[in-house]
């Protein structure tokens, strides 16, 4: 049986929320103290998403690794695939913060951006 109990991360109250399927294909929740909790739990249940943050290899820069971040969240199930792709790429300095490092990573529609500016080695 799939997981249906979630710890809410919307605010520090950290409600434990149970997601219960409706007859009409929708969901109701129990345990949440606010509307935002309901939304979070249903989203975690049906379509969980995560940010991608990691580093990629950078050549000719002051440091060997460049931090990168996704422009938005990607489906949680695609996270591993996104990271594996990122481990295989290598960029060349200089890079500016916000430069697109990978477009539409793994077909998620989300771009991966450089998370900082990095100059070339002098």
């Amino acid at each position: 049986m799939a997981k249906n109990v979630y710890t809410c991360v919307v605010c520090p109250v950290s409600c434990t929320i149970e997601v219960i399927p409706n007859a009409d294909g929708g969901f109701t929740t129990e345990g949440n103290q606010c509307k935002r909790g309901e939304k979070y739990a249903i989203s975690e249940h049906t379509d969980p998403v995560r940010m991608v943050t990691t580093t990629v290899k950078i050549r000719n820069a002051i440091l060997p690794r460049l931090p990168v971040i996704s422009e938005g969240e990607v489906p949680k199930g695609k996270l591993k695939e996104c990271l594996n792709d990122l481990y295989q790429i290598s960029v060349e300095a200089p890079v500016r913060c916000g430069d697109i490092i990978v477009k539409n990573i793994c077909g998620t529609g989300v771009n991966i951006l450089a998370a900082r500016t990095m100059k070339e080695k002098n």
């Binding site: 931090p67 913060c97 998370a115 900082r116 500016t117």
Partner: peptide
Amino acid sequence: ARMSGAQYAQKFID
């Protein structure tokens, strides 16, 4: 916004 630490620093450095 949901930024990484490096991005946050970059805003100020810029």
